[in-house]
Structure formats: C-alpha cells, structure tokens
Design a protein around this nucleic acid. Structure first.
Lengths: 160, 160
DNA sequence: TATTTAGGTCAGCCATATTGACTTAATTAT
DNA sequence: ATAATTAAGTCAATATGGCTGACCTAAATA
C-alpha cells in the first residue's frame, strides 16, 4: 500500500480523510435502513424481508436461484424469510418453464408493502439529492459503484 | 412528495435512478464490511467488535456513555462485546476523573487489531478514490454526509 | 442411465440486537 | 445532609438473521 501520510500525497487521500469516509459509510447506512426497519418491526418482519420484496418487486418472475445470487445468503437463510412472505401472501410462487424452478412475484399486498418501505428510502434520498447539482450526484454514484467488489459490480449491472 | 416521474423532473431525480442509489448503498456497504468480517471470524469476533475498537482507537479515553452515543446500541448489547475485548486484553479500562465513569483505551494488541481491520477498508477506499478527481470525492462525501440523519450529522461533526 | 441442478427441509449453532428489572457507587441539587 | 440523578453493570428472556451439515425430491441434461 502507498504511504497515505506522505507529504506528497494529495490531502483527500490521507488516512484521516479516508477514515471519515469509513464513518460516513457507517452512519449513512445505518440511517438509510432505520426508516424501513421501524415499519417492518410493527408487522414482525425484518430487514431481510424488505430485501426480498425489493428485488422481487424489481424483477418479477425472479427465480430463487437468481434471488440468492443477488442477496448472497444461503438458501436456508432465505427460506425462513421467503416462506413467511409466501404464507402471508406478500409473494406468489409459480412454476417456471423449467419445472424445477419457481418464479417469485409480488401480490398486490406485497407490492403495497414494497412501496411503503422503499418510499421511505426513496423520499430520504430524493430530499438529499434535490439540493445537489446533477454532477455531484453523478460523482456520488460513480464512487459508490466503484466501492462495490468488481464481481458484484457486474451483478449490479445485470439487474440494472 | 414530489412526483418523481413527472416529465419536468430532472432525469437524475427519477424513481428509477433513486432506486439505483438504494442498490448502490446495499451492495457497497456489504462489500465494504466483508473484508474485516472475514478476519474477525477467525478470532471469533464480529463486526460489533470492530466498531468498538475503531471508535476507541479514534478517541482514546472514550467513556462508555460516549461510545454508546456513537454506536446507538443499548449498554446490554455493548457489554458482551466490550467484556470480551477487555477480557482478551484488546481494550484497557481505567477510572475517569468522575469516578463513576470508565475510560476505554486500546492496548498494543487492540491497536494492532484495529490497524489490521481498518487497513482493509482504508486500502479498499484508497484504491477506489485514487482514480478519481478530488472534486468527485468531495461530491461523494458531501452527498453521503447529507444521507445521515441531521442529529447524527452533528455526532459525526463532534468526533471529526 | 447417470449426473447435475433447483429447490426444500431439519437440526443446531452463533452474533447482534432488543426490553425490562434491578443494583452499586458517585456526583449533584435541594 | 439528604435526595435525586447519573454512569455503569448485570440477569434473564426474546427476536432476527445469518451460518453449517445432512439429507431429500423432482426435473433436466450429459
């Protein structure tokens, strides 16, 4: 690694400045998830449920395998959450063309919950970025994108 | 809330673009924590231990109360993690001037672990931001900062 | 026909968080 | 001087979200 405290290093590459970014990531992510968390608590769901309905909502007819690839958790971890969402009719299962696969779709109920939860985050982000120049937001997105591991950048590209 | 799909809304304020930011936050934060997580696993610690030694390392002689304010967890949650760190001599406790308080300091052992863990994140961030213009990084930090809840922005300012 | 793939399930474990109740010792306010 | 508040600690119970390992079925593919 380069010597981050070298006098020739630009100021913004100093360890102190980088540690600020570490803290910005920690604090911003925590506040970013806290809104939906409070709503989820009331219906006895957790953050994991939000993630599932978020990505199912984004891509209807997602298979379990595709969902696991996005979430990067084990199928055992997913199963508890997914079974609850299916049992409580937020998500509808159907058989795929390949009959081994199952397709996941949001019901109206699931769609409404997805909207309710994601809108909290969408509004929060909207209220932040509306006060910036488009160029600031583009920089923000570019940098955040590069913070993702290279193989997961590809996954992000696939779903977008 | 404004209509995010209104034709007059700038493109970068569209719901679709905002959802990309949601996903960037999710993927980047996950990859941001995965490095330290793997190291912590080997010594039977978790992410919570990293947070504690991170902030103790940042501000030596931090009190329990101040630490709780930063982490925003209950003292019961902190106690398990902190007791382990003290028992295994990563953190040294001492009595404050106000004898009700305790001051937390990293031992050499704790300092070394802090460096080892944080350097993973520092290097990751360094390798990302070195390829950007300083203005991009400034935009990135400004936007991320505003993503923090207003009262927590103050806490960030206090420690920086 | 054999192998691989998609999905499911059971059991047990661990980490991180919570709430509530209660204690001790020290400081501060009345 | 006494009462109230504060900092810290502890016990117990609970929830969530992850994990590993083992094992199963049914469908697709080699």
């Amino acid at each position: 690694m380069a010597d981050l405290n070298n006098l020739l290093t630009p100021l913004f590459l100093n360890e102190k400045e980088i540690r600020k970014i570490i803290e910005l990531m920690f604090f911003s992510y925590r506040d970013f998830t806290s809104g939906p968390d409070r709503v989820l608590e009331q219906i006895k769901f957790g953050r994991a449920h939000h993630r599932v309905i978020y990505f199912v909502g984004k891509r209807n007819n997602l298979t379990i395998k595709e969902l696991l690839k996005i979430l990067q958790i084990t199928k055992q971890s997913l199963s508890r959450v997914l079974n609850q969402l299916v049992k409580e009719k937020y998500i509808i299962l159907s058989i795929g063309e390949d009959k081994r696969t199952k397709k996941l779709t949001l019901s109206k109920r699931g769609y409404d919950l997805e909207k309710k939860l994601s809108n909290i985050q969408i509004n929060k982000i909207y209220n932040v970025i509306k006060n910036f120049e488009e160029s600031d937001i583009n920089s923000f997105k570019k940098v955040l994108y590069k913070m993702i591991d290279i193989n997961n950048q590809r996954k992000f590209d696939e779903i977008n």
